[in-house]
């Protein structure tokens, strides 16, 4: 298909979104990522039964934490698609890229620079 998606997206592969922990998102943002999102299988289609449902709950936890500490929960999202939906994968990447560009850079980065 040779679909294009924004170069700002860095893909980290995991065996199942159930592997994605709250800490993964927090560490990514702490290290300077402007946003992070998980792309899991369709709900009800998880090969491991509930991996994607767990991921969704964890994303919600991270969103709550980020809202509380003033970073903004919208910087973290959960998307679902099936493995044959390449165009949708690219569409979600564009959507996420646009969302983060609207929100602007991760606010902790400017303070990090000052501290350095």
């Amino acid at each position: 298909m040779r679909l294009a998606y924004p170069t700002s997206i860095k893909i980290i592969r995991v065996p199942c979104t159930g592997k994605v922990d709250v800490l993964y998102f927090l560490r990514a943002l702490e290290k300077g990522a402007d946003g992070a999102y998980a792309v899991g299988c369709m709900e009800g289609d998880c090969h491991f039964n509930s991996g994607n449902l767990r991921a969704r709950k964890r994303v919600e936890q991270v969103q709550k934490i980020l809202d509380t500490i003033g970073i903004g929960g919208e910087r973290v999202q959960m998307y679902n698609l099936s493995s044959s939906e390449g165009p949708l994968f690219a569409q979600y990447a564009v959507e996420m890229d646009e969302r983060i560009r609207k929100l602007g850079p991760n606010p902790i980065k400017k303070h990090k620079k000052k501290a350095a």
């Binding site: 922990d21 709250v22 800490l23 927090l26 560490r27 943002l29 702490e30 934490i65 509380t68 500490i69 003033g70 970073i71 606010p107 902790i108 303070h111 990090k112 000052k114 501290a115």
Partner: peptide, 21 residues
């Protein structure tokens, strides 16, 4: 250990965002 990591990470980001070292 995991909850310690989550809280510590959240606090580090909070203080950085507040401009505190």
């Amino acid at each position: 250990k995991k909850e310690v990591g989550v809280l510590a990470s959240a606090l580090r980001m909070y203080f950085l965002n507040e401009g505190k070292e």
